[in-house]
Amino acid sequence: MMDHAHDLACVREATDRLLSAVTALDDTALAGPSRLPGWSRGHVLAHLARNADALVNVLEGRPMYASAEARDAGIEEGAPRPLEVQVADLRDSAARLQAAGEAPADWTRTVELRNGVTDSASRVPLRRWAEVELHHVDLGTGYELEDLPAEFTERETGFLAERFSGHPGIPAIRLTDGTRAWTTGRAADVPDITVTGRPADLLGWLAGRRDGAALKVDGGELPKLPPL
């Protein structure tokens, strides 16, 4: 069962870590490339700010974005801004999301995200936590998948494994870090392959941040996952 209040606190802590890292940059570093193809670090920060506002819309019953074009335009418009403006926007948008999350609400209700995706309102904070943590890694400023909180790594691995469950183009997979295990891919009584690796490497592969070269695969080859 989701504990949205706990996850909101985790989002706040992750955002504080991100802000501390970003304030150590300068405008030149901000304009430099991130680890996401075609995006500067400024693009990443602009996306995070607009994502916070978009999730406020979700929690308050409005469309997440006016359109896909508006989403992309907001990121492009915000990307070249100076560091001081980026930091203020990131901090202020995060505060708006925290306030929306702390307002009295029915957290069991179903909300609509992008592209017709629906979910429980109680999972919105976990989704935001993933945005902040993974995009912090994407900045390429020294925060790596190995630095992510252990709770986040375990829960996001489970979330992504669930996301790919039932996908007809992915074989039945058992994922394990040697202690915990998850299943994903097509439904089957017996997995087609078993994928074993360190928690950071499993999450990195599922999240499209690593190619899976560090993983051990038994029973076949590591499949290519569809984009998130």
Rank of each mutant, 00 (worst) to 15 (best):
A21W: 05
A66P: 02
T196A: 04
A94M: 07
A29P: 08
M64P: 06
L59R: 14
A103M: 10
E69R: 13
H136V: 02
E112S: 15
A94C: 09
V190R: 15
D119R: 14
N115S: 12
D147W: 00
W182M: 03
A21E: 10
L30C: 05
P33V: 10
L19N: 05
L30D: 02
L113W: 10
L45Y: 10
T157W: 05
H6S: 06
L202Y: 09
L202H: 05
K216D: 09
P125I: 10
L25N: 07
G197Y: 04
V87Y: 01
T28C: 06
L148P: 01
R123W: 02
G78S: 02
P191V: 07
F164T: 04
T194G: 00
E13F: 08
T194K: 01
E60H: 12
A54Q: 12
V58L: 04
G212T: 04
D27S: 03
E146S: 15
L19W: 06
K224C: 01
A46S: 05
G212K: 06
P149A: 02
D147A: 06
R210K: 15
A214S: 15
R35Y: 00
L126M: 13
V217S: 06
R210S: 15
D53R: 15
L48W: 01
K216A: 10
R96W: 07
L134T: 06
L97E: 03
S165W: 09
E133L: 11
G219P: 09
R186C: 03
T23I: 13
D16C: 04
A31T: 07
R109M: 04
D192Q: 06
R123M: 02
L126F: 06
D192S: 11
S40M: 10
R35S: 13
F159V: 06
D92F: 00
E221V: 15
S122N: 02
V11K: 09
D106I: 02
T184V: 03
L45K: 06
T184L: 06
A95V: 09
A213Q: 08
V217N: 09
T157P: 08
D27T: 03
R35D: 04
A99D: 14
G42S: 10
A88M: 00
S34K: 12
P168V: 13
P33M: 09
P226M: 10
L59V: 13
A161M: 02
E13T: 15
T176F: 07
E13P: 05
T15E: 05
S34M: 05
V137D: 06
E77T: 05
G220L: 14
A24N: 09
L139Q: 08
M2D: 11
A94G: 13
A54P: 08
F164G: 03
A150N: 00
D16G: 10
T108Y: 02
L25S: 11
T118E: 11
G204I: 08
L8A: 10
A70R: 12
D106N: 11
A214P: 14
V44C: 14
R198C: 00
D26L: 07
R209Q: 08
M1F: 12
R123F: 02
P227A: 09
L145M: 05
L19D: 04
G42F: 12
A103W: 09
R12C: 04
T183D: 01
L83W: 01
R210Y: 01
A66N: 00
